[in-house]
Structure formats: structure tokens, C-alpha cells
Design a protein around this nucleic acid. Structure first.
Lengths: 227, 227
DNA sequence: GTTCATATTTAACGAACGTTAGATATACGA
DNA sequence: TCGTATATCTAACGTTCGTTAAATATGAAC
């Protein structure tokens, strides 16, 4: 195709394909995105995609792993840092929430100038009901989720487990929504709210979540279940 | 196709197509859903879809209008009912939130036995970045959104406008997430939380939102902007 | 019974899809 | 210099896509 591409034993082709795929997956969705469009954007021919990734599914997995792998690592490091060491006071609720949210916002912010590709990609992952994608994501977040839930539970011992689970989902649900529908939020609020404005969103959201988390359990919620 | 279909001047064909389309849009998304699959499920031939709806886009619009039209009507009626009449006390914050949320949950609950089709459809609408769909939805919710925002603002006069807007988005974001990812939430919580369990979700969520809404504005939020 | 708008059919168009076969170019080790 | 593994190409396979043309069946009006 491009004659200079022949000289590229430099290993950049694979990255170029991943970047192109990521962009197209993000704004078209996994299923309607065509590998032909991806190849075109990456300036390679079709079989190169199969050479590197085997199939469209393999390409999807590679795209997800490249972005969400580092995010998980960051979350795991934050969890390790927040483990209450004997003798030192446990972390504040705000600190825990910031550790949950900030890496996601940073990820979203980092690619803002590339058109918020990663943010939309998150939305695609969440909204796509394909079992392969849902299973991957479920497995991907399992440990991090468990870790943050335990940290929160230690802070809110009086809260029934079910209520904490509900509220944990409320938090991630709102965050996912903010990130995946950024342009929509901007339009609806006439530009007042922009989820990419991390400096504003983070304190706003943390404050809101702390209030929600520390609210008393609603009437009728079962008390702490017996172990 | 089916010879008995010829006797169907009964006007049920159109409804059958809409129902089939709704199901397939819900679990495949608008773009990857094929009108051939829709026609197959509705047991009609392809051109019938074009006879009734003109194009795939027209079919999408009709499907959305059939479900979301009544929802908007219900919201508008609730808003009219909640308009503070002179002499009577203004509605409680819980009442407003219930009026916002309950119609959505009822819609979701009503079709639970059909496999939560409408819930997934909501998710599709929210996640789909196609301008045609986003524009439709934006226009669709404009008035209702404005109405509820005003009701809430009257209850929280000390809250800067921007903070209220953020929190309003947090509420709808979490709710949309709950509904669109029902099976995922169920799996993640080992069945403890089921967004379809309206009787539990509604009080849990209202309590959480009231706490979040009434939290003080975070430090650094601009005070009430001058008019 | 003829007319005519409504409703539905079969058949096909061109385009795009995911994937693969087979050939060719490149760069390094012998 | 000659293989040989790596990397990339052109070309094509069969399938599905959204859409349309043209014909036919239906049921009510006259």
C-alpha cells in the first residue's frame, strides 16, 4: 500500500492498528465497526489485521486490554496504598472515593484531545451486551471491585450489605454515564457541566457520593445480615 | 408468506413489526440490527417494512415513539400534578424524585416478563451516538427535564445552579445505568441487587439521591450566579 | 361485477461485510 | 549469498446488508 510501510519492521504497525481500531470501535460500536474501515484508517491492508490479531474478536480483546489493563493496575496500586496498616488511621471516605474515581477521570482526560476516544470506548463496553465482552469486563474488574467494596464497608459498618451494594452501583453507574455521554451532558446543560472538566467533576461527584453513601439506610432495608 | 396474513386488514401487522423491531433493536443495537431479521421475526416480507415505515430510520423513530411517548406523557402529568398551587404546601423532595423515577421503573417492570426489552432499548438510545437518535432524545426530554429541574431548584434555593445540574445528571446517569445493565448488576452483586425489583430499588435510590441533592455544595463551587 | 386504494409478495440491485488463499517483499542468520 | 521466518500485499470467496421495481392479492365502494 504505502511503499514505506515495507520498511517498518519497527513494530509500530500493531500499535497503529490498535489506535485506529480503538477510534472506530469507540464511535461506531464493536459490531457495526468494520475491520475494513479500521485497516483503511491504519493505512494497512486487510490481511494484516488477521496476521496480528487472528480475527475481529481478537482485535477487540487487544484494544480493550491495551487501555483497561493499565487502569486496573492503577486501581490495584491505589488499593495497596490504602490498605490500613496497623497503627495508622484508616483512610477517609473521600480518599477512597478519589482513588476509585480519579484514575478513570485521568484516563478520560488524557485522551480528551484525541476526541475522547477512550471514554466512548468505556461506554461501548458497558452498553454492549455481547456475552464475550461482558464476561471479559466482569472478570477484569472483579478484584478491584472487591477491594473497594471492603474498604467502603469498613467505613460504613452500620450499613446493611445490600444497601452498600446498591450504592456502589449507583456510583459507578453515574460515573459511567458521565463519561460515555459527555457531549450529551454538555449540550443538555448548555455547557455548564463538562465531564471532561476533571477539576470540577471530581469534587462535585465525590461530595455527592459521600452524602449518598453516608445516608441512613432506607426504612425496610434488612439490618446487617447474620454471617 | 403466511397465507393467512393476507386476511389481516386488521391493522395488526404494523404493531407486530414494531414489537419485533423493538426486541431486535434492544438486544443488537440500532445499527447492527438488520431489517431482515426484524421482518423474519414479525413474519412479514421485507418490503412491508418499507411500506409502513419508509426506511430503517423511520422504523427506529416509530419504535422509540411508541414506547417513550407514553413515558413523556406520564412525566408531564406528574409535573402538572406537582405544580405548587397557591395556598397548598410545595411537594416534598422525596415526592419529586419519586415522580421522576417511578414512571421509568414502571415502564421497565411492565416488560420484565418479555425479557426487559424496553429497558435495553433505553440503554441503546442512551449509548448510541448517532446524531439522529441523540437529537430525537434530546428534543424528547427537553420539557420534562426543564420541569423537574425547576421543581428541584425551588427546593434547594441555596444550591448553585451548576451544582444542581451536575447532581441532576448524576441521578439520571445512575438510573439509566441500573436499567440498561440489569443482568450485569445482578451478576456482580450475586443476585443481591436487581434493578427490576422496583419495590427495593425505588426507596434505596430515592434515599440516596435525596442525601446527594441536599449535601452542601463542594468548596470552590461558585455561589449562586448573578442573574 | 368492476374499480381502486390498500396491503403484501417475489426477485433482484449494488454495496459492504468477515475471512482466507496465495503470492511477494523484507530483514536477519548461516 | 542463500535460505527462512516475518511482514505485507492483491484478489477473491460467500454472505448479508438496505433498498427498490414490478407484480399480485385483498376488501370495500360503486
Amino acid at each position: 500500500m504505502n511503499p514505506r510501510a515495507h520498511t517498518a519492521r519497527d513494530g509500530r504497525t500493531r500499535e497503529r492498528i490498535l489506535t485506529a481500531a480503538e477510534q472506530i470501535f469507540a464511535d461506531r460500536g464493536f459490531e457495526p465497526a468494520s475491520i475494513r474501515a479500521i485497516a483503511r484508517r491504519a493505512r494497512v491492508s486487510l490481511p494484516v489485521l488477521y496476521y496480528y490479531f487472528g480475527s475481529k474478536t481478537g482485535l477487540i480483546r487487544a484494544v480493550l486490554e491495551r487501555r483497561f489493563g493499565p487502569l486496573r493496575t492503577e486501581h490495584q496500586q491505589a488499593l495497596a496504598r490504602l490498605q490500613p496498616s496497623p497503627g495508622s488511621p484508616p483512610p477517609e471516605l473521600e480518599t477512597i472515593l478519589e482513588a476509585m474515581i480519579r484514575p478513570v477521570l485521568r484516563l478520560a482526560e488524557a485522551d480528551a484531545r484525541q476526541g475522547s476516544v477512550v471514554m466512548h470506548l468505556i461506554g461501548r463496553v458497558i452498553a454492549d451486551p455481547t456475552p464475550a465482552i461482558q464476561d471479559w469486563f466482569q472478570e477484569h474488574i472483579r478484584n478491584v471491585r472487591q477491594g473497594f467494596l471492603e474498604l467502603l464497608a469498613r467505613h460504613l459498618p452500620q450499613l446493611p450489605r445490600a444497601v452498600l451494594l446498591w450504592r456502589y452501583e449507583f456510583i459507578w453507574g453515574a460515573l459511567a454515564f458521565m463519561l460515555c455521554n459527555r457531549s450529551w451532558v454538555v449540550r443538555k446543560t448548555d455547557g455548564v457541566c463538562d465531564p471532561l472538566d476533571t477539576g470540577t467533576l471530581l469534587p462535585q461527584f465525590v461530595q455527592y457520593c459521600v452524602a449518598g453513601l453516608t445516608a441512613p439506610a432506607p426504612r425496610g432495608s434488612r439490618a446487617r445480615p447474620r454471617p
